[in-house]
Design a protein around this nucleic acid. Structure first.
Lengths: 215, 215
DNA sequence: TTTATATCGATAATTTTTTATCGATAAATA
DNA sequence: TATTTATCGATAAAAAATTATCGATATAAA
């Protein structure tokens, strides 16, 4: 029997960051306490679900009152491990890679991109959004020496598998993958895909449906 | 009491674009027929699920053989309405907005961004990635006149609600929202959110878990 | 021609996720 | 102080999604 892991169903995990957005909003307004009901109303979802999600993370509230806002925020932040800044490498300085580098909000999400890699000679040894750019050949060695565990993959599809393998060779344990391709890596590597086509497909399909029913 | 418009479960809808990636890969290799088993293996999921997803879209295959590759591709593309290019506006030319404009692959996903909007005077009346940039004040009027139905929202959180309302006023029916905020719009507006924090939260949580069990 | 095999589609079972119910409790109010 | 109220957390029910089973069928092999 393995140690009891504090885990959560995937749908719950995905809702937590949204709760956090709401909570930080409320905090900015000077509010001190919050109930599952309020969060649920704000997001247009069921309050029972919010309560269940929160209890999954282990926090306990008070009847009639709800939760201490600060405590709840800290709790979720900790649960997502966003209170521990993790250093990461980003590979692929196309439009998306640059955009991610420029979005320094990720620091609030525990992600600290400390170096970027590309093959474009124009970019090498420059800085993009204050982050140094290196030749992709140095990736493996640097990742090992700096004990980097997260890789952000924003290269074209054609290069994705190869670069991902280099990341793994460098000791990277988790890959945030933006290339629309299935990476084939050892089972113990955590892969989190962002496939914009999925989201766009939902949208275009629904829009077509809407037009069908209207017509 | 909203009418039910969704013709496929959301999880199915989200898997279809992934199937398409695989299928187009196979097509490029000259393959003519494909079975659910092959798609499933390629993605590391269950073949029964693939078969079920495909049958949800209405296509029929042959025992022992599977599906005609071209027919299957066309079928999914049509189901997602990606065979009908839909014109769209993009608002917010920060890093992400520019990156999306630059990624002309979206044309394969039925999305044709025909104009962009921002408030930055530097950008007005220029072109970014061959797309004209206009003052956000013109959004509503232009959307109406050009009968635009999709809006891509890449503005900062602080502006998102306001801009979204302008889109709706201009007749836009579906919003692809990249701002990490819950938009409050009429029920008949289709909203598809891309919250990177969700995906990142899953990744950082899992990585922390992994380290816990190793320790 | 007969047998073996891979896959389909339909139906059923299982698992996961969401939603409902209800007693307990902390605060507000009468 | 007693009553009312909003919310919690636990448990149960319902709904949704995934996975399993099985007969039918098209091709390949014996």
């Amino acid at each position: 029997m393995t140690k009891k892991l504090i885990s959560a169903p995937l749908p719950t995990l995905k809702r937590l960051p949204r709760y956090l957005h709401i909570l930080q909003d409320l905090k900015a307004k000077g509010i001190k306490q919050v109930s599952a009901t309020i969060i649920a109303e704000e997001l247009g979802i069921d309050s029972i679900q919010v309560r269940k999600d929160l209890s999954t993370t282990g926090i306990i509230g008070k009847p009639k009152i709800g939760f201490e806002l600060n405590e709840l925020i800290d709790h979720i932040v900790h649960f997502l491990n966003w209170d521990n800044m993790t250093d990461a490498f980003l590979v692929g300085l196309g439009g998306l890679g640059k955009a991610i580098l420029g979005y320094d909000n990720f620091k609030n999400y525990g992600l600290n991109i400390v170096a970027a890699f590309d093959t474009d000679p124009e970019l090498l040894d420059t800085k993009v959004h204050c982050v140094g750019v290196f030749d992709i050949k140095k990736l493996e060695d640097l990742a090992q020496r700096m004990k980097i565990h997260i890789g952000v993959l924003t290269v074209p599809v054609s290069a994705a598998q190869e670069v991902a393998e280099k990341m793994v060779a460098g000791g990277i344990k988790a890959i945030w993958n933006f290339a629309p391709v299935k990476l084939k890596l050892p089972d113990n590597i955590i892969i989190e895909n962002v496939f914009l086509s999925q989201s766009l497909g939902v949208l275009t399909h629904r829009l077509a449906q809407l037009k069908n029913t209207e017509a």
